[in-house]
Simulated scan of single mutants.
Amino acid sequence: MNLFRLDASILPGSSTSAELADLAEAEWTAAHPGSTVTRRHLGSSPLPADAWALATLAAFTAEAERTPAQLEALALAGELAEELRAADAVILAVPFYNFGVSQHFKVWADLVIAGAGPTAPLLAGTPTVLVTTLGGGYGPGTPREGWDHSTPYLERILADVWQADLTVIKRELTLAATTPGMEELKDLAARHHAEALGAAREAGRALVGR
């Protein structure tokens, strides 16, 4: 059995998304001792920013005319796509940055698409847990309702394009405890945290069951 784990936090030592993903992973590995966990951390080991353009242009270039850089980018794109194809289960920990996904995650997703094709169902039926964390509140009735341009994108790529059997764990208000002006939200943030911890454990158990 092979679990693919991806992290995208730029703060790996204090990542709120990793905290939740760790709980889900622990449930999976407890049920599959000795199994393989393939890891990719985009925050601490980012992919080359120009690789997607190189791989994409290479696809429109005659094989004999491809540059070494294009060939390298194509190989990387193929490797990333194969990591998903080979997975029996997937956990992704993807924080919310600047009202969207980080450049690190976007480069990865674009390269996977370059390696597999724009509509390849790489995760068809594969149980997948997406953990996403947001510093503020973006739900109905909040001042920034509708500003979350990350979660819908992630769901489109994972569930609609790659056809994963997707479970989403979303924790908001992660910055309430440390950010001036958010003091009155601390209790609500604590409840969000507790609920997310429980959801992560349950998602890990469900990952095993599926």
Rank of each mutant, 00 (worst) to 15 (best):
G100H: 11
G100K: 00
G100V: 01
G100P: 01
V101F: 12
V101M: 10
S102C: 10
S102Y: 01
S102T: 08
Q103K: 13
F105R: 00
K106D: 03
K106W: 03
V107S: 06
V107T: 15
V107M: 07
W108E: 06
A109D: 08
A109Q: 14
D110N: 02
D110G: 05
D110S: 07
V112G: 08
V112N: 05
V112H: 01
I113A: 14
I113S: 15
A116S: 15
A116M: 13
A116Q: 06
G117D: 11
T119A: 13
P121C: 09
P121H: 12
P121M: 07
P121S: 07
P121E: 10
L122A: 09
A124Y: 07
G125Y: 14
G125S: 12
G125A: 11
T126G: 10
T126H: 11
P127V: 09
P127K: 09
T128I: 13
T128N: 13
T128Q: 14
V129C: 00
L130F: 08
L130P: 06
T132V: 12
T133H: 05
T133G: 04
L134V: 04
L134E: 03
G135A: 14
G136D: 02
Y138N: 07
Y138P: 04
P140K: 14
G141A: 11
T142N: 06
T142G: 05
P143E: 09
P143S: 06
R144L: 13
R144F: 09
E145P: 08
E145W: 11
G146R: 08
G146F: 14
G146Y: 09
D148S: 04
D148H: 00
S150Q: 14
S150R: 00
S150N: 04
S150Y: 00
S150E: 03
T151A: 01
T151F: 00
T151S: 04
P152G: 06
P152F: 01
L154P: 00
E155D: 02
R156D: 09
R156L: 12
I157L: 15
I157S: 03
A159R: 15
D160N: 07
D160V: 07
D160G: 05
W162G: 11
A164W: 01
A164G: 06
L166F: 12
V168H: 14
I169H: 09
I169F: 10
K170D: 14
R171M: 15
R171P: 05
R171F: 05
E172T: 09
L173E: 05
L173F: 12
T174E: 02
T174R: 02
T174Y: 07
T174K: 04
L175E: 08
L175S: 11
A176S: 07
A176I: 00
A176H: 00
A177G: 13
T178F: 01
T179N: 03
P180I: 07
P180C: 10
M182Q: 15
E183T: 03
E183I: 02
E183A: 10
E183M: 07
E184T: 11
E184F: 05
L185G: 11
D187M: 10
L188P: 01
A189P: 01
A190Y: 05
R191S: 09
H192F: 12
H193P: 00
H193M: 00
